[in-house]
């Protein structure tokens, strides 16, 4: 028997072996360079801070307790509130857009492409585009001044407003995609039935279309909320030193502040919030009307 036959023979007798051979390299990589680091990070978050090393041996919950300090509670609250705010604004802007795309038969592909395009362009570049528009010498202020509407530039950059605009601008496509997907496969005969039975357009929307698109709404909300929670670049570049979100707090603990265990605890809190959101989504998806088949 040559080697090739021997190898094939081995895999014929052990069906699981084929699957695990295919899985091994990638899964091993993810275990070593994704799962293990997060577990080590979790370990660091309950260890005391060392003098010359990041941590020293021992167990403590002090880093988690520190979050009850009003300063950090405020950052947590701000992160949560802004992420939620961005999600709501994305929904208010994204739902009508998704509806329009799903109902415009002729232009559908082009309109969808125009939503997906910014989704794939560099996030850093897009954030810079916001700076370019909003800084004191930026296009918005320059235009308003040259029109004579204002004499001094309005401070736009480094405000909560700038961060909110940045978050919405960055994550809006995530909202449109799943809502569009659920509206697109909506069974139109249901709407015809509603019309025949005398429902006015608004009633048809509220009682038929919207409930059936809920899985898309929930998925979109999650896809905006999760990256907003962990966002770093937006608040870093558009918010400045005063509008800190938890991502900036974490980054700071690993650079200037050099408090790795506290930074690890903050990271773990973000990770936990994300996992809670995902589990909540999966439960809603499986119980919502017509939800099981929607993505």
């Amino acid at each position: 028997m040559n080697l090739r036959q021997r190898i094939l023979g081995f895999y014929h007798t052990r069906k699981d072996a084929t699957a695990w051979t295919l899985l091994a390299p990638g899964v091993l990589w993810l275990v070593v360079f994704f799962l293990a680091p997060i577990l080590i990070m979790l370990g660091y978050s309950v260890m005391p801070r060392g003098l010359f090393t990041p941590v020293k041996a021992g167990f403590t919950l002090e880093h988690y307790q520190r979050f009850f300090d009003p300063l950090y509670l405020q950052i947590l609250w701000r992160t949560f509130a802004w992420s939620l705010g961005a999600t709501v604004i994305c929904l208010l802007m994204g739902y009508p857009l998704a509806y329009l795309i799903a109902r415009s038969w002729k232009w559908r592909n082009l309109l969808m492409f125009l939503v997906v395009l910014p989704f794939w362009t560099s996030f850093l570049v897009r954030t810079f585009a916001m700076i370019f528009l909003m800084r004191d010498t930026g296009l918005i202020n320059a235009t308003l001044i040259s029109l004579g509407l204002i004499t001094e530039p309005i401070p736009l950059l480094y405000t909560p407003f700038a961060v909110m605009v940045g978050l919405v601008y960055g994550f809006l496509p995530f909202m449109v995609l799943p809502i569009y997907a659920s509206l697109e496969k909506l069974d139109l005969s249901l709407l015809e039935a509603a019309e025949v039975l005398g429902a006015r357009p608004w009633a048809r929307f509220v009682r038929v279309t919207f409930p059936l698109s809920l899985p898309g709404v929930v998925a979109g909300a999650l896809l905006v909320f999760i990256p907003a929670l962990g966002s770093f670049l937006t608040s870093d570049l558009l918010g400045g030193a005063k509008q800190v979100m938890i991502g900036n707090l974490i980054q700071n603990q690993f650079s200037a502040a050099r408090n790795w265990p506290f930074g690890s605890a903050a990271s773990f809190i973000v990770m936990a919030l994300v996992l809670v959101a995902v589990v909540w989504y999966l439960r809603i998806r499986d119980t919502a009307p017509g939800g099981a088949e929607a993505k």
């Binding site: 993810l30 994704f34 293990a36 660091y44 929670l229 962990g230 974490i250 690993f254 990271s267 994300v274």
Partner: peptide
């Protein structure tokens, strides 16, 4: 379980991936 595990990196915030790798 493996499929669920494979989806976790898709939803993990970048900052968490970055700092945990730095620690490693």
């Amino acid at each position: 379980a493996l499929e669920a595990f494979l989806y976790v990196p898709l939803v993990t915030p970048e900052i968490v991936v970055g700092i945990s790798l730095l620690i490693l």
